[in-house]
Amino acid sequence: MKLLVIEDDTTTGTYIARGLREEGHVVDLVHDGRSGLIQATSQEYDVLVVDRMLPELDGLGLVKTLRGTGNRVPVLFLTAMGSVEDRIGGLNAGGDDYLVKPFAFGELSARVQALARRPQTVVQDTSLRAGDLEMDLLSRKVTRGGIEIDLLPREFALLEYLLRRKGRVQTRTMLLEGVWDISFDPMTNVVETHVSRLRAKVDKPFDVALIQTVRGAGYRIEG
């Protein structure tokens, strides 16, 4: 993927760029809003990572201007404030996601992936698959190798969320937002508990584990 990182702090910017390059992306890095706007309009990017507070032209103004020209490139805001108002302001200005500082690199990487592969049109599948696991969305039945697995509603929702994003890492905060609709940190291990319960039902009785833990980032379903 081709990414543009607009971050005024050189150290942070460099770390982000290096990390993303190590994951195989092509990354351009600029340090102020005006250069960011010029760069974003002069080339095609898959995702923009934009700091909210930038010299010359701040992140909000940059994205607003960009959207004004009809540019729909997915934008991930990095914000120091992280308050509700901040988030609403960022999303209203045309941001697609936001990340509050300080963030772990795994979180950033997972969210960039999620943004880039956001489907343009939502296809209504009636069943989801991973390996020999099959989820029927109409009858709400889950089977693996022909054996029916009994899931609680939240476990079903969690598995569905992971299956729909097969192969991509989902962080704890992404799962909280997507499965529980909670956009703050409840400071509890609810995600870990549900993942381990899901594993006990979906993976433990079988030879191959489908749900994988990605260290320092989150979970991913493969197959």
């Binding site: 150290t11 982000i16 120091a80 300080p102 690199f105 795994g106």
Partner: peptide, 13 residues
């Protein structure tokens, strides 16, 4: 938060 962010990323690495 800028320095905290740096520390956080360095710890990640």
């Amino acid at each position: 938060k800028t320095p905290v962010q740096r520390v956080s990323l360095q710890l990640d690495e």
